[in-house]
């Protein structure tokens, strides 16, 4: 048989093909899966799961941002603030 003829035959080999029939067990399996899914949904709604996951992710993100942007600042005591305001130094305060 010529090569081209063979190729044409192969390419046309699906002509007249019948659809394969789905197995009888398929419907039962689908019903079973849907029942199982209903149970899971009844326990924890999908939206709640996603909401919880998003909240945790946001919390982690905010913590990371907070830690990264944290710079310890020097706190002035009341005495130091007073000294700064009146431009006093330790030498000025020393008594004769």
């Amino acid at each position: 048989m010529e090569k081209q003829e063979w190729l044409n035959n192969v390419l046309n080999s699906t002509q007249g093909i019948q659809r394969a029939e789905a197995p009888d067990s398929l419907w039962v399996k689908i019903q079973q899966e849907l029942k199982n899914e209903v149970k899971v949904i009844a326990m924890v709604p999908r939206r709640t799961v996603w909401l919880a996951a998003a909240s945790v992710a946001l919390l982690i993100l905010l913590n990371l941002v907070a830690v990264r942007s944290y710079h310890p600042t020097q706190k002035m005591t009341a005495l130091e603030a007073l000294m700064a305001e009146y431009q006093l130094s330790a030498e000025n305060l020393s008594m004769p």
Partner: peptide, 11 residues
């Protein structure tokens, strides 16, 4: 399974 018998090998 739906291919005609004479086309099985080609298919």
């Amino acid at each position: 399974p739906g291919v005609l018998l004479e086309q099985k090998e080609n298919a």
